[in-house]
Amino acid sequence: MGAEALPNDLEAPLVLGLQPAGLMDYVAPVDWSLLDRLPGDRGGSIPVQKDELEHILKEVKTHILESPGLPPPLKTMAGGSVANTIRGLSVGFGVSTGIIGAFGDDDEGQSFLSNMGFSGVNISRLRKKKGSTAQCVCLVDASGNRTMRPCLSSAVKIQADELTKEDFVGSKWLVLRYAILNLEVIQSAIQIAKQQGLSVSLDLASFEMVRNYRSELLQLLESGNIDLCFANEDEATELLRGGQDVDPEAALAFMGRHCRWAVVTLASKGCIAKHGKEVVRVPAIGETKAIDATGAGDLFASGFLYGLIKGLSLEECCKVGSCSGGSVIRALGGEVTPENWQWMYKQLQMKDLPFPEIRN
C-alpha cells in the first residue's frame, strides 16, 4: 500500500505521539436502553466491523431523535488516546508536539489531518494512504461514562517497517497507547526511540485490552523500556489479575518496579503516583459533574507530561494532570473547549502551579 509523507518543514517536536491509524470520533449522549442492546461490556472498548459501526451510528441517530431529553446530535472530532494527549499538550500547554501515523484518502482522513494541524500539532510525520480512515463511536451515558466501539480493522495504518530514525531524532518523549493490533509497530517505535534517547510513555488503553492480552503487556513493561505508565483503576485491576478487590496501590507498586514513573487514576477519587521510592496520593481538583469521561485519562496524561517537562515535583505533576483531566469531562468529546481551558488555567492559578499564558 503506497504512502505519501507530508513535508517536514518544522523543527523536531518536544513530544511525539505514535497513533498508527488516524481516527475520527463520533460522540453522542445516550441512555442505558441503547447501551444494553450493544454487545460487550458497558464502559469498555470493543472493535467492530464497518457494517457494525454503520448500524450503531444509525441506531444512535434514531435514539437521539426519539429521546427528547438528550442533547442533539453527534459531535465529530479527531480522536484516539494519543491524539487527545498531544493535542492537549499543544493547545492547552503550548508544548511542541507531533504525531506519527497514517490516514486514508477519504473525507475522514482529511478531517483528522485538518483538526490536528489546526491544533498546532506537527503533522509532517503522518502518511497519507489509499483506503479508509479509522472511526469510533463514543456513547456517553447520563453519568458521564463512555462506551467505545472503534472500527479499525479495515483502516489504513502505518507499518513497523515504515518508521525511520528521522521520525524521532531531536524529540524527547514518545507517547504510546497499548493495543495488540499495533504491537509490532509499537515495539519498533520503542526500539528507535530508545536509540535516539527518547523517554517513552505508555497508556494501558482499556481494561478489556489488558484482560485479553495481559501476557504481551507484561513483556512490554518488563522490558524496562517504558519510562512512564498510566492506568486507570479498572486497567490496574486487570493488570494484577487479583479479582475485583485488588488494591490500586499494589498495581502501582508493580508498575513502579518496571517504570520510572507510574500513575493510577481513580476518577473522582483523584490519583496515586510513584517515582522511585516516593508515592503520592492527590485528590481530584475542581468540583464538577462529568458530562463525558471521554479523554479524561488522555488529558490527565497531557498535564502530567507538562509537569515532567517543566521539572515539577511528582505531587505537582499529579495536580496539573488532575486539572487537565478535569477540564475535558465538562463537555462532550476528547477535545477541550476554549472555555474549559480557561477553567483549567484558573484551577492551576489557584493551586499556585505554573501554566502558559492564558489564551483568549
Rank of each mutant, 00 (worst) to 15 (best):
G2H: 11
E4V: 15
G22V: 04
S33R: 15
R37N: 11
R37E: 13
P39F: 00
G40Y: 00
I46A: 00
I56T: 01
E59A: 14
H63G: 08
L65M: 14
K75P: 00
T76V: 15
A78T: 03
G80D: 01
A83I: 04
I86M: 12
R87G: 09
R87M: 14
V91W: 02
G92K: 07
G101Y: 00
G104W: 02
D106S: 13
E108W: 10
G109E: 06
F112V: 14
S114V: 09
V121S: 06
S124W: 09
S124R: 10
L126P: 08
K130T: 12
T133G: 11
A134L: 07
A134F: 02
A134M: 07
C136E: 00
D141L: 08
R146T: 02
S154D: 13
I158M: 12
F168V: 04
F168W: 05
Y178S: 06
A179C: 13
E184Y: 05
I186V: 14
Q191K: 15
I192L: 14
K194Q: 10
L198N: 01
V200W: 03
M209Y: 05
V210L: 10
Y213V: 05
L218F: 03
Q219M: 12
G224Y: 05
G224P: 08
N225A: 12
D227I: 01
C229T: 04
A231P: 07
D234Y: 07
E238L: 06
G242A: 10
G243L: 07
D245C: 11
P248K: 00
L252R: 03
H258W: 14
C259D: 02
R260S: 15
W261A: 06
A262M: 08
V263W: 03
V264L: 10
V264A: 10
C271M: 14
I272F: 09
A273V: 04
K274F: 01
H275F: 08
V282N: 06
I285L: 14
K289I: 12
A301Y: 00
S302K: 09
I309N: 09
K310D: 03
G311E: 03
V320W: 01
V320L: 09
G325F: 05
R330D: 04
R330W: 05
V336P: 11
V336A: 10
E339T: 11
M344W: 02
L353Y: 04
P354Q: 05
I358D: 11
